[in-house]
Each structure stands twice: as C-alpha cells, then as structure tokens.
Amino acid sequence: MDAPMDAAAYDPWSPEFVADPYPAYAELRAAGRAHWHEPTRQWLIPRHEDVSALLRDRRLGRTYTHRFTHEEFGREAPDPAHEPFHTLNDHGLLDLEGADHARIRRLVSKAFTPRTVENLAPTVRRLAAGLVGDLVAAGGGDLQAMVAEPLPVAVIAEMLGIPEEDEERGLLRPWSAAICGMFELNPSEETVRRAVEASVEFSAYLRELFARRRKTPGEDLISALLAVPELTEQEMISTCVLLLNAGHEATVNTTVNGWRILLQEGVRPRLENLSTAVEELLRYDTPLQMFERWVLDDMELDGLLIPRGSEVALLLGSANRDPSRFGPTSDALDLTRPDNPHLAFGAGIHYCLGAPLARLELTTVFAELLRRAPGLRLVSEPVRKPGYVIRGFEELVVEV
C-alpha cells in the first residue's frame, strides 16, 4: 500500500473541528483504516470495526511500563516535576495492564455488580429529584452547574463515604477537572501545574480520610477497600480518584450534550423508551471522543506497518458514526435505534467499570427533567470547552 494519507482534516486544537468533528471523521473513514497524523505523532483509527477490535487487542496497552523501560520503548521518562500526577495515574485501573489491572479490577468490580447498582437507584432518584426540583423552582439556570455536574459527583461521594460536612467535598469536581486536563493532547504547562497540584491535594485528603475510616469503618466503599490486604494505600488512592473522574465525566457531558441536541432539534424521548434514547445520545455525540493506546508489538493494519513504540488514537466519536456499522442513518439522531453497539464506554479489559451506574444516572436525570420540565428550552447557544478528547460545554443555560 502507498504511504498513508496525512490526516489534514483532523485538527484537535481547532475550535471549528471540536465544534463538529464528524465531517472530518467521514473523510478519514472514506480514505482508509489508518492515517498518520504528524502534529500529534499518532496513528488515527476511524472505523468502527477496527476501533472495536483494537480496544480488545493485547498488542496494544494503555501503558508499556509493565513490559518495557522508557528507554527500551524509545520514550522519554516523565518530567520529575510531574511525579504526583503520574504516581496517581499510573496506579489506577485506567492505565494499569497485566496482573495488576486484573487484581484491582476484580476487587473493585464488587462495587459495581448489578445488585449494588440497583441498590443505589433510590439514592440516585432522590438526588436527581432534588437537583431538578431546584432548577424548576428557580425557573431555569445553568443545567450543567445545577444538575448535570452535582448529581454524579454526589453519587460517587456517597459510594466512597466522603462526609457531607467535609469542606473538601466541594473540591471534588474542581480537583477532578484539573486532573482530567492531562488527558487532552499536549496539555499546556498551566494545565500540568493544576493537575499536579490537584493530585497532591486530593491524595492528601484521601490519606487523612483513610486514617479516619481505619478508626471508625462504615458501610462505604473506602471502608471496604481498606479491608482488602492486597491493595496498597497508593492503589486505593488512585482507585478512589479514578472512580470520581471516570464516574462523572461521561454522565455530565452526555447529559449536557444530549439536552443541547434535544432542545435544538425540538425532539424528546418517550419515557417508556428512555434507555434506548440514552444509548443513542451516547452514540450520536460521544462524550469521550478518542482513546489512546501504545503499540507493544509490531502490527499491520490495512497493509501498513505500525511499529512497536507507536501511539494509536482510537477515534470513538468516528466509530460511533460509521455507516458501515450503523447504516445510512449513522449521522442522524434516532432515539428509537434498535441496534446500537456504540463504543462510548470502550471495550475489552478497560471497558468502563461504571457503565451500569452511568446508565442509571442518565436515565434517572433525563426522566426527572422530562416529567418536571416539559417546556425546557435553551436561553442561548452554549459555548464549547476547548478540549477535544473530553468534549463538552462551558454551560447550558435553560428556562423551564
């Protein structure tokens, strides 16, 4: 095969691209299965079949340090000044591979069984009803700040057992936002500084909370983790932070992206079909647009050699609009779409552990808004955040 097309249409730092990446994705899918993108030094993978397969392919990894040193892999070691973030991130499920990933996932997955998620339903309903009630009583406001953000943060905080009286509870969302900034492409030094600072502060708070829980255990997840001798304290800290970060980003952005689409197009899902509609909103405007993987062993795709040490960008947003999988209506919003194998929660060993909880939160908050704010309408066109990987809005101001 000839040399790969340079993916000029893909510009993750362009506000125009971030606002609507889907035409560029269509170009990439039409042009081939893999494209070298020089600015990000990544191989872009745009098609559903390939993204789905590579998410499960063990020749790829979220990290490479379980098999290679930085030098062996042809990469530079992280800046020592960034160590607090990397210590936090490298001990969490998202970036672990091999035996450590399997061990921690096995232990933490007990908190996300169908039974435990079902037991959370009354808590989620209570929190959602209170937040939506406040929005309705105020006649409207910022749906993101008043409903979408506080709901999943409160749910995870209750799961973990973070006391309501702790003033640090109000810092959970800012800490999380600062840390998640590191998952964008080429974060700025200011972004890195905020992420490192948040990593230090969040870790220190959890160590102090762990000390309290060791003296007076409760029925919460932190108490349960402390009772597991196979977990180190750093693994527990990283797990708690990851549960907060991953446990609310998809819910927040799917709620806001979804309602913006519904309000703009003047459509509403039916309550009896809400689960199907939520899956379609996850597919149609995917909250996590791209997931990166390291190539651990030489591989070939579409006649192209992708060598060990390369990085691939699995374009979830493109895969979820692929007409070869979703048919001629792949670019249309179909709230009754019956066959919807979207990849918004990933696949393989890194499939989102909290997906059942995210679905519960989304169906609950959409149902509350449909019932109690049937006349919901946009006040103004929302402004997008600059981030591409985790794609959302600054706010969503509505009237009821």
Score class of each variant (00 low, 15 high):
326 F>G: 06
182 M>W: 04
127 L>D: 07
317 G>Y: 10
242 L>G: 09
237 I>E: 00
97 E>R: 01
83 E>F: 14
6 D>T: 08
55 L>R: 00
315 L>S: 01
347 A>P: 00
179 I>P: 13
363 T>L: 12
65 T>V: 15
98 G>R: 01
29 R>K: 09
256 V>C: 02
103 R>A: 05
135 L>W: 02
168 E>Y: 09
67 R>A: 15
389 V>E: 05
324 S>W: 14
382 P>E: 03
83 E>M: 14
106 R>N: 13
242 L>I: 10
235 E>F: 03
176 S>I: 15
164 E>W: 14
397 V>H: 12
188 S>E: 04
351 Y>I: 11
227 A>C: 10
128 A>F: 13
7 A>I: 02
357 L>D: 01
296 L>W: 01
8 A>H: 09
22 Y>K: 02
345 F>Y: 06
8 A>N: 11
187 P>G: 05
51 V>T: 07
293 R>D: 07
376 L>C: 05
348 G>T: 04
357 L>S: 01
72 E>T: 12
344 A>V: 07
145 A>Q: 11
109 S>W: 14
75 R>T: 15
78 P>A: 01
37 H>Y: 02
343 L>T: 02
372 R>G: 12
400 V>S: 11
331 D>R: 12
387 G>Y: 04
116 T>W: 10
112 F>S: 04
272 E>G: 08
143 L>V: 00
94 L>F: 10
142 D>T: 10
151 L>C: 06
56 R>E: 15
275 S>C: 04
101 H>E: 06
338 P>E: 09
58 R>P: 02
117 V>G: 14
96 L>C: 07
129 A>N: 07
163 P>G: 11
348 G>E: 06
97 E>C: 01
279 E>K: 02
113 T>I: 11
397 V>L: 12
270 R>C: 12
267 V>N: 10
185 L>V: 14
304 L>F: 01
40 T>D: 12
350 H>D: 00
78 P>K: 01
86 H>P: 11
77 A>G: 10
239 T>W: 02
80 P>L: 00
240 C>E: 02
391 R>W: 04
68 F>D: 04
128 A>V: 12
64 Y>G: 09
187 P>D: 02
25 Y>E: 11
19 A>W: 09
134 D>L: 15
368 E>G: 07
322 D>C: 00
297 D>I: 05
21 P>C: 08
248 H>R: 13
381 E>A: 10
62 R>W: 15
123 T>R: 11
209 L>P: 04
155 V>A: 09
112 F>Y: 03
248 H>Q: 14
114 P>E: 09
316 L>T: 14
353 L>R: 00
277 A>W: 00
30 A>I: 10
197 E>P: 07
345 F>D: 03
115 R>N: 07
103 R>Y: 05
163 P>W: 08
92 G>D: 12
296 L>T: 00
384 R>Q: 13
313 A>E: 12
89 N>P: 15
222 I>R: 12
42 Q>W: 04
3 A>R: 12
44 L>D: 09
318 S>E: 05
299 M>C: 07
206 L>F: 02
352 C>H: 07
293 R>W: 07
183 F>P: 06
116 T>Q: 12
191 T>G: 14
20 D>L: 05
49 E>Y: 00
244 L>V: 09
182 M>Q: 06
345 F>E: 04
234 Q>T: 13
136 V>R: 11
282 L>E: 08
276 T>D: 09
240 C>G: 03
208 E>Y: 03
352 C>F: 08
